[in-house]
Design a protein around this nucleic acid. Structure first.
Lengths: 137, 137
DNA sequence: CATTAATCCTATCGATTTAATAGGGATTAC
DNA sequence: GTAATCCCTATTAAATCGATAGGATTAATG
């Protein structure tokens, strides 16, 4: 299941990418337009800023803006920050690898084999899609 | 994240598929061999039986056996029973569709578009792989 | 028929995670 | 100096997950 956090984060990024002009976009505006609880969205935006996807401007008329071009923002990277590992089991994760407690040898593990395939195909999609793809028409 | 329930369930099915002969396989044996808590495995086997993947024999020398050929058991079907929907959001689920609370129009939703692609690719993998593929060498 | 070994079934528990809220601090435009 | 806005930490309520408990039922076997 995709968490609400990730879902809201992706929607917010898309909203900012779509909003033309150089003015920063306010949380309150995104919150109203996308039906996202404002306080919850606040913490998500903070995460996205701290991980280098967004810049912010404080005070009146402040808000958030993209730091990179939408075409440079890969969904795989956003997902890793908001949702965590893309792999369904830690033992097939590229960025968050962990050995399983059970499983003496993961190369013999049937689940391992299957989940590598799932990971590879999911990654393919998430690497091919950028924020530009999400916000385009 | 794949739940332990699903992971254990897949391992147990693989174990039974690999164990040749017509004798039913006991929970205690699978539990020891695959490092799965026995009581937990019990409830998983029950689920798999009730959903038509396994048959059982009660009493002494009882146990579980496959009802269908391994090649006929698609991972997509097993996953749906143990893990629930394959889609990451209910609004792109084929078997468990639900409208989102937010989202006035899901055809306009950027997350929706992305998650359909993820679902399609995951499904492709899970439909192509059968229990025979998992248990083969 | 008694014993043993197995599945069957329901309930419960503790830990973790999730989604959301609360409450204020810091900064900037005007 | 006031209002608007981001910044930050803490807390909470509910749900889920992994596991355990405790027995009821069934069947093989001597």
């Amino acid at each position: 299941m995709l968490s609400k956090k990730t879902k809201y984060g992706l929607k917010a990024l898309t909203y900012i990418a779509k909003s033309e002009g150089d003015n920063p976009v306010q949380i309150s505006e995104i919150s109203k337009s996308e039906n996202i609880p404002q306080k919850f969205l606040e913490s998500i935006m903070l995460t996205l800023r701290k991980s280098g996807f967004l810049g912010s401007k404080k005070g009146k008329h402040g808000g958030y803006y993209l730091i990179k071009e939408p075409a440079q923002i890969k969904m795989a990277d956003v997902m890793r920050v908001l949702e965590g590992p893309i792999a369904m089991v830690p033992c097939v994760s590229l960025n968050f690898y962990e050995k399983c407690d059970d499983c003496p040898d993961e190369h013999e593990c049937s689940v391992h084999k299957l989940m590598i395939q799932v990971r590879d195909n999911t990654l393919k999609v998430l690497r091919n899609n950028t924020l530009e793809d999400l916000s385009g028409s």
